[in-house]
Design a binder for these strands. Structure first.
Length: 299
DNA sequence: CACTTGACCTGTCCGC
DNA sequence: TGCGGACAGGTCAAGT
């Protein structure tokens, strides 16, 4: 589920909501979601203050004053939802944002998907929910985070200034013989792109997702570079994509999906008015949305 | 080594 | 309505 724009949105929300708060209790009962021992938590989290919330690729990090960090991956269906003390005392009443009755997927928490409950000194609560249990949290010294295998190999951040078209080209050529979609989804090539934004950016760049990386002309890689940045920025502006489960730190949906040009648009006319219908097929083992008229296949 | 496929889980939707 | 199977936004291990 959450890709870079969704995780970035959660990060920004949490930075507004939990920085400065002190952790008083954490409860959890699914070791694959959160493998740490209660002893670790009690020693280094209870009484600790939240200093900062960071993001790298699709991973969130919550840094504590004890120089310990929660490292969190939401995978497909993870959610981090903050509920203020006042709201938490109520039940489901007033849990839907004023004037937006349908912008939330969250009912009363905790629910059956809740894996970890973090309580703060003011009575507010952060829920880690994850229906499919693919997501995880790890609690470790802040200094050790960068030694995690994922962080050692992960590629550059596409929204940093140093991300140039030449850099994209160089990174993609780490996987010269695979499909360009598989390369974009490979987090060691580039950080943060998932299935939605791979399809959207490849459509914008007129590249068929099954094109072989090394066969795609540099001119089109340049276009892809621009599309990646534009698509990610637009999605962040819209609060990310909510297809099924994703909500931000306040439990609210993102609206990017209504701006998507191909993702989940199978059977609909291509937005370029080329006369073709968007089809859904499978590339790199993933559902893939394409206009075969507008997206050229380089093989 | 490079690349692809299956596994991890639960829930939902679709066809019979 | 019930049931089986396919599928869902991510990543790693195992397989080719």
């Amino acid at each position: 589920m959450p890709e870079l724009p969704e995780v970035e949105t959660v990060k920004r929300g949490l930075n507004k909501l939990i920085v400065g708060k002190t952790i008083t209790n954490i409860s959890f009962d699914w070791p694959k979601s959160f493998p740490n021992s209660q002893d670790d938590i009690a020693s280094f989290a209870y009484g600790a203050k939240v200093i900062n919330v960071r993001r790298r690729a699709k991973v969130l990090m919550i840094d504590l004053s004890t120089k310990y960090t929660f490292v969190i991956h939401l995978k497909m269906t993870g959610q981090l939802v903050y509920v203020g003390a006042q709201k938490n005392k109520n039940t489901t009443k007033n849990r839907f944002g004023a004037g937006h009755p349908n912008d939330s997927l969250i009912g009363q928490l905790p629910d059956k998907s809740t894996r970890v409950i973090t309580t703060f000194n003011d009575g507010s609560v952060l829920y880690f929910n994850d229906q499919r249990k693919f997501g995880w949290m790890k609690f470790m010294p802040t200094a050790e985070v960068k030694t995690l295998p994922f962080f050692v190999k992960v590629g550059p951040e596409p929204l940093e200034d140093t991300f140039s078209a030449d850099l994209l080209n160089k990174r993609l050529l780490k996987r010269p013989n695979t499909t360009i979609k598989a390369a974009l989804l490979d987090q060691s090539v580039l950080a943060g792109i998932g299935n939605i934004y791979a399809d959207e950016s490849l459509f914008g760049a007129n590249i068929h997702p099954a094109s072989t990386v090394k066969k795609v002309p540099k001119k089109h890689i340049n276009k892809l570079h621009k599309e990646i940045i534009d698509v990610l920025n637009l999605s962040i502006q819209k609060g990310g994509s909510t297809d099924k489960n994703y909500v931000n730190a306040e439990g609210k949906k993102g609206s990017y999906i209504t701006f998507a040009k191909v993702f989940r648009k199978e059977g609909k006319p291509c937005i370029n008015n080329c006369g073709n219908i968007i089809i859904k097929t499978k590339v790199a083992g993933r559902g893939t949305h394409i206009c075969i008229q507008c997206q050229k296949k380089y093989v």
